[in-house]
Design a protein around this nucleic acid. Structure first.
Length: 572
RNA sequence: GGCUGGGUAGCUCAGCUGGUUAGAGCGCACGACUCAUAAUCGUGAGGUCGAGAGUUCAAGUCUCUCCCCCGCCA
């Protein structure tokens, strides 16, 4: 065991608008959970934070469709997402909300700090105002005729016909998408702009020094910086969101405006940590402020590829621009997309499985294993029900589940449910120990590198090594002629059961816990094993009592796959 | 149009700074075993590594051109 370290781990924030699909899950929250569990098992101090991202126009639209107030809608959806995350055993230390008062205050704090640093500018801009709706209309609430090609259903930000990028005020014959009203005026209104170019050199130096990032992340960040950062509006004409303040009081002229969601969402990482601190009595600053003890924290972020620029450039502009000593990301892991049979997951198109639906079919561990063993790390990856079935049946049921079952049942029947003593390890056990040492070292390296597919493959390979050993050692034969030898093999096999559960715990935590409970392994025996630990095959004391766990994984039948394909649009 | 990443056995993918007969899992065929969820273990068949050219004693692995696929940005 190495020296204790501290890890702050965040997952990209799921948007509040509806429950997430399996692609969203494997794109940040799930791998972040695996890494958090792995670091905890190593004995490190871990703080794992996530939250729902609740502001912006999509939330307003969805609430209106649901016939709810935005607040009530977000309250409901937050609980739904929280429950789904729990079903997948996501071990957040806190699952917060960007709409929480603490995040409001933190966002206002950042805006004021940025203004003091000369990075905020108030400008008057022309915006589309709907008289009948009594409000300014954000980009996606306006439609009209494209000034370039004459297409009549151009959106406020872009014409789908000719591809031109538009400003909503350019549209001819504009109409409100909310009410359909054409009673539209162009009015001047003030907004706050973040002067990002002033921070460009600072961010560039930091990216340049961030050698632990993957190549892709660095190249994305440099591309943004090379193209030049723009002054960016950080406020919007909406009622749902974080109010704009100045010196702690409502900012004059901004009573009908809020911060733009992209500005307050990443601050939600900090806000959610403050929620955690308030709920537990802990100190949040030692995780986020380098002047308050966070200088020894390793901050790891998980996100989809589309989010890299925000995490490597936009959010750092906010953090560094404040002039305050905030902790910034050290390591990051970005994912490509999980596709549904090569296409997009789609709610309306009835394509793909969403988190709540998945849990109705099978427990979280089944999904965790397949999703992580096939995580979209180097490129997009396809989710198929056939692949899922194959992974569950072959890896979980046949290789791991059956291994646990075959040796524990044998021991229960022939050894009276206790770990047998006597005998001494022979050549087979020595070869097995050497194989385990190599495998654990490789697996540990893969977890350190956050290579999830490789970690899953190595975990599986170790399970296979266990089956090979049993096949070769054949305790069912030995017990007839050489009881001492049988005792050694069974004892070794039972120790393998506990070892395999520990090694698999980051991936399938619920199952691992059930196995370790059944084997009556004490809490101190459940950490991450060291590759050089010579006692791994002889940890359970002779005479130790256990119960064979019930069958761990049920196989997925062809008829189930057929039914699910029908229900969720499988087969491509 | 610009930029990542990818195009390797039927399928899903490994192949680091170039070096013996190109690897794994799944699937398939055959065999072994019987403790176990008809599970497990072993053996085998299967690929001109997207196309072409170049560098090199030697290229899936480097260079150039071209063709496809997902995505991001415009």
């Amino acid at each position: 065991m190495g020296v204790m370290a501290r890890f702050l781990i965040t997952s990209a924030l799921p948007y509040i608008n509806g429950i997430k699909h399996l692609g969203n899950l494997v794109g940040s929250m799930l791998p972040a959970d695996v890494h958090a569990r792995y670091r905890r098992m190593q004995g490190h101090e871990v703080l794992f934070i996530c939250a729902t991202d609740e502001h912006g126009t999509p939330a307003e639209l969805a609430a209106a469709e649901a016939g709810q107030s935005v607040r009530a809608y977000c309250d409901d959806q937050h609980e739904i997402q929280k429950a789904a995350c729990a079903g997948f055993h996501l071990s957040f230390d806190h699952f917060g909300r960007t709409s929480h008062p603490l995040n409001h205050a933190r966002t206002q704090h950042f805006a004021e700090a940025l203004e003091r640093a000369g990075l905020i500018e108030e400008r008057v801009t022309a915006q589309v105002y709907s008289v009948d709706d009594g409000r300014f209309l954000p980009d996606r609430y306006v439609e009209g005729t494209c000034p370039v090609c004459g297409y009549e259903d151009a959106r406020g930000d872009q014409c789908d016909n000719c591809g031109s990028l538009l400003d909503p005020v350019q549209l001819k014959n504009p109409r409100s998408k909310i009410s359909g009203s054409t009673n539209i005026e162009i009015r001047d209104t003030a907004h706050l702009f973040l002067r990002q170019p002033l921070m460009e050199a600072r961010v560039r130096d930091w990216v340049d020094a961030s050698t632990q990032w993957p190549h892709l992340a660095r190249s994305i960040a440099f591309k943004w910086l090379d193209e030049g950062l723009q002054d960016r509006s950080i406020t919007r004409d909406l009622s749902w969101g974080i109010k704009v303040t100045q010196d702690g009081a409502p900012r004059p002229g901004f009573d009908s405006k809020v911060f733009y969601v992209w500005f307050d969402a990443p601050i939600g990482y900090i806000g959610a940590t403050e929620e955690w601190a308030a709920a537990t009595g802990q100190d949040w600053q030692r995780w986020w402020r380098t002047d308050q003890g966070a200088d020894d924290v390793t901050y790891v972020q998980f996100m989809g590829k589309d989010n890299v620029a925000f995490h490597t450039v936009s959010f750092p502009v906010t953090l560094f621009g404040s002039g305050e000593p905030w902790k910034a990301v050290d390591r990051l892991k970005a994912f490509n997309w999980l596709t549904w049979y090569g296409g997009k997951f789609s709610t309306s198109g009835k394509r793909g499985i969403f988190m709540d639906q998945a849990l109705e079919l099978l427990p979280g561990d089944y999904w965790r294993w397949y999703l992580l063993a096939n995580a979209p790390e180097s490129s997009d990856a396809a989710f198929t029900l056939e692949g899922f079935q194959s992974a569950v049946n072959a890896d979980l049921a046949n290789v791991f589940g059956n291994f646990v079952n075959r040796i524990t049942r044998f021991a229960a029947t022939k050894m009276e449910g206790r770990v047998p003593g006597g005998g001494a390890p022979g050549p087979l056990e020595q070869a097995l120990a050497a194989r385990l040492a190599d495998g654990i070292a490789a697996l540990t390296a893969h977890h350190d590198a956050m290579d999830f597919r490789k970690a899953a493959a190595e975990t599986r390979a170790l399970w296979v090594a266990g089956n090979e050993y049993l096949q070769e050692a054949a305790p069912w034969s030995a017990i007839k002629t050489d009881p001492e030898r049988a005792a050694v093999v069974v004892r070794t096999g039972l120790n393998l059961v506990t070892l395999f559960a520990r090694l698999a715990a980051p991936f399938i935590p619920d199952t691992a816990q059930r196995v370790l409970d059944a084997m009556a392994v004490p809490a101190e025996g459940r950490g991450w094993p060291g590759a050089d630990d010579a006692s791994l095959l002889d940890t359970l004391p002779p005479g130790h009592a256990f119960e064979p766990p019930p069958v761990l994984f049920a196989k997925i039948e062809d008829t189930q796959v057929t039914a699910w394909a029908e229900q969720f649009g499988g087969g491509g």
